[in-house]
């Protein structure tokens, strides 16, 4: 056995990970790469417990749900004070509406982070990338920290980054579909090419799928439906947190290459040995 010379095995691992593991967005250093949604829970207390169990540093809330007048039903009262609040523009059908919702969020004291959701289609809840880009351009000028939800598209994502988006949030599958990372090939390219973190948002149904996103090098994963609608949402939040951490570690460790087929026993270039 090799002598550890006063350093424990855990120290080495933690040091290694911390060196590369902090996610920086909008001037904030985030320890957790799990972003949590707040819709669809059975009650606010359960949502609060799930957020705590998830150890998420960033939590998104639909501005339309915030009721500042209510003493008992204001969702913001149930969100831990130490997390970064990322209000979202759910309900916006175009850039103008997204901008107006962002203004309401700021006026309601929700900080300056904003997740832009521009969805003109209530059937599939697929976002409008062009209107999203316009909203980014307007809100970045007003010093918002802008994270756009988008349909995976490298060219559009580049434009969004140029416009000032601090991260890009492509969908893995339609919102709430629990279908997993169906857009994998495009998201992989985006991870490779973009200079900002890629956060998979929407469609992730299981912790293993979240881990898969992280193994691909995504900056973070946002989940809501999969946690909120689980029979035990608190336990599911924990499971996601662990899977996301495991996926990140695997990415940092460097996963082995995957062989698409077995090595041929009669290689086509075998004859070269003879020359």
């Amino acid at each position: 056995m090799l002598p550890l010379r006063g350093i424990s095995r855990d120290d080495i691992i933690i040091k290694n990970i911390n060196m590369k593991n902090t996610l920086k967005i909008g001037g904030k250093e985030l320890k957790s790469r799990f972003f949590m949604g707040t819709g669809k829970f059975a009650n606010f207390e359960e949502m609060q417990k799930a957020i705590i169990a998830s150890k998420a540093d960033v939590v998104t809330v639909a501005v339309r749900r915030v009721d500042l007048d209510s003493k008992t039903d204001n969702i913001l009262d149930f969100i831990p004070k130490d997390v970064v609040l990322m209000p979202n523009t759910s309900g916006a059908r175009n850039a103008d509406e997204a901008v107006r919702i962002a203004h309401l969020a700021k006026a309601a004291g929700c900080g300056n982070w904003i997740k832009i959701e521009v969805i003109p289609d209530n059937q599939y809840l697929l976002p409008d990338n062009l209107e999203t880009l316009k909203a980014i351009e307007a809100l970045v000028k007003e010093d918002f920290v802008v994270l756009p939800y988008m349909n995976p598209d490298l060219v559009m994502a580049r434009r969004m980054v140029e416009a000032g988006a601090v991260a890009i949030m492509p969908l893995g599958a339609p919102i709430g579909s629990n279908r997993g990372i169906k857009t994998k090939e495009i998201v992989k390219i985006m991870v490779k090419e973009l200079s900002v973190p890629v956060i998979v948002d929407a469609g992730i149904g299981k912790p293993s799928e979240a881990a898969e996103c992280m193994e691909m090098g995504c900056g973070a994963v946002l989940a809501d439906t999969a946690v909120a609608t689980a029979d035990d949402s608190v336990l599911m939040a924990e499971a996601f947190a662990e899977a996301i951490e495991a996926g990140r570690k695997a990415y940092l460790a460097g996963t082995g290459g995957v062989q698409e087929s077995a090595s041929a026993s009669s290689p086509l270039t075998g004859f070269l040995r003879d020359s």
């Binding site: 639909a62 339309r64 749900r65 915030v66 009721d67 309900g91 919702i101 309401l104």
Partner: peptide, 9 residues
């Protein structure tokens, strides 16, 4: 029970 899920904007 969702008391508010919309607003004018």
């Amino acid at each position: 029970p969702v008391m508010k899920n919309w607003m004018r904007f």
